[in-house]
Write a protein that binds this DNA or RNA. Structure first.
Lengths: 187, 187
DNA sequence: TAGGACATGTAAAGTGTTACATGATTAG
DNA sequence: CTAATCATGTAACACTTTACATGTCCTA
C-alpha cells in the first residue's frame, strides 16, 4: 500500500464517498488525478479494505459509493503509529527564485508578484473555509476525538504556511523594488 | 526538459560541479537520487546544455566536472520568465495528522513530538547554514545581482517555513496534552 | 574493522501525468 | 451555444525510487 491508498482510507473514515468526491477531498493533501484514484479504489476493494454499493442515477452517470471496512480501518490505525516517510516538496518556482540573478529585475519582480497574488488568493479561500468550519462545528473542532479535528488542524497549518509564504514574498520584493528605485535615480 | 533538468542547470550557473556534488546541492529543492541525476546529466550533455571534463584521481574514483554552456544558460533564462508549474507537496505525516482521531492520544502526542523534534533539528541546522553564509558573503547576500542572492532567499524561506511548522506542532500538542491531563484527573 | 565519504553507472519496479473515451444536465 | 459538473474507466508515457554493481581511502 502506498501513501495515496492511506490518504483514501483516511478520507473514508470520516464518511463514505465516491471516487469523484475523494478526488476533491484529497486536494488537502495533494492533487491526485482520477486516473490514479479509480484503479486504486478497485485494488483496495479487492484487498477488502473498502466496499462499495453501486448507485444508479438518472440524468447523471451511475456511481459507486465506497466505505471503509473494519480491515481497512485497522490497517490505517496501525499505519498511523509507524514513523512517517520524509516529506517531499517539488516547487518549480523555487528553482526560478534560486536562479533569479540570471533574470532582469522586472522579470524577478513579476515572478514574485504573481507568487504573492497566488498565495494571497489561497489564504483568502482558506480563511473562508476555516470560517465555515468554525460556524458549522464550533467547539467540536477542538475536541481531539472528533472526526473533524484532523481536518481542522490541517487547514490551520495550511493557513500558517500560506501566510508565511506571503511574508517571504514581500520581504524578497522589498529587495527587488529597492533595486528598481536605485536604477531610476541613476538614469 | 523537466524540472530536475532546470534544477541542475540552476546549480551549474553558480559553479561547475560533479554529479555527486549536484546531488548534495539539489537537496535545497528536493532529494533527487543519483540514479536520476547521472543519466539526466548525460542527456543534458548530449543536447549541449552542459559540457564536462574528465578528471582522473588517485585514491578516489575518477570524476566528471560539468559546466553550463551558453546554450544552457539561455535556456534557463528563458524558462525563468515562464509561469511556474503549481507546487506539489507530498507529506505522509499530514495524512496521519488528518486521521489522528483514530489513534489514541499517546500515539498522537508521540507523532507530533517527533515531528517537532525533526523540525527543531532542521531549524537549528538552517540557522547555522545561514550564519555561515552571512559570515562568508556579508552584504553580497542582499545584492540581487550576486549569484548567492537566490541561495540566500531560499534558505530564509526554509527557515520561516520550519519555524512555522514548529509553532503549529506546539499548538496541536497543547490540545493533545490538555486531553491527557483531563483523563488523569478523571481516573 | 565497520561504516562513511567519494564517485558513477544501469535495470527494474513503482508512482504519477496526460490523453483517450463517453454522455446527460444545468448555468451563464 | 459553451463550459462546467457529475461520474468512471483505460492506455501510454514520464518521472521517481529501489536495487544491483564496483572500489579505495579515512576515521572512529
Amino acid at each position: 500500500m502506498n501513501s495515496l491508498g492511506y490518504a483514501l482510507l483516511s478520507m473514508l473514515v470520516r464518511k463514505s464517498c465516491t471516487g469523484y468526491e475523494l478526488k476533491q477531498l484529497l486536494e488537502v493533501f495533494w492533487n491526485a488525478k482520477h486516473s490514479q484514484i479509480y484503479p486504486l479504489l478497485s485494488k483496495l476493494e479487492e484487498d477488502e479494505f473498502v466496499t462499495y454499493v453501486h448507485v444508479e442515477q438518472t440524468g447523471k452517470p451511475d456511481k459507486k459509493i465506497y466505505s471503509i471496512t473494519d480491515k481497512g480501518r485497522s490497517l490505517l490505525q496501525k499505519w498511523i503509529s509507524n514513523p512517517p516517510a520524509p516529506p517531499v516538496a517539488r516547487d518549480e518556482f523555487l528553482i526560478k527564485a534560486y536562479a533569479i540573478s540570471l533574470a532582469d529585475v522586472e522579470t524577478g519582480i513579476s515572478l514574485f508578484q504573481e507568487r504573492l497574488a497566488l498565495y494571497e488568493e489561497k489564504l483568502a479561500k482558506r480563511k473562508v473555509e476555516i470560517g465555515l468550519m468554525e460556524k458549522e462545528y464550533g467547539e467540536k473542532l477542538e475536541d481531539i476525538k472528533s472526526n473533524v479535528f484532523g481536518r481542522y488542524i490541517l487547514f490551520k497549518r495550511k493557513l500558517l504556511q500560506e501566510q508565511e509564504e506571503i511574508n517571504w514574498c514581500k520581504w524578497v520584493l522589498s529587495y527587488l523594488e529597492k533595486e528598481v528605485k536605485t536604477n531610476r535615480i541613476m538614469s
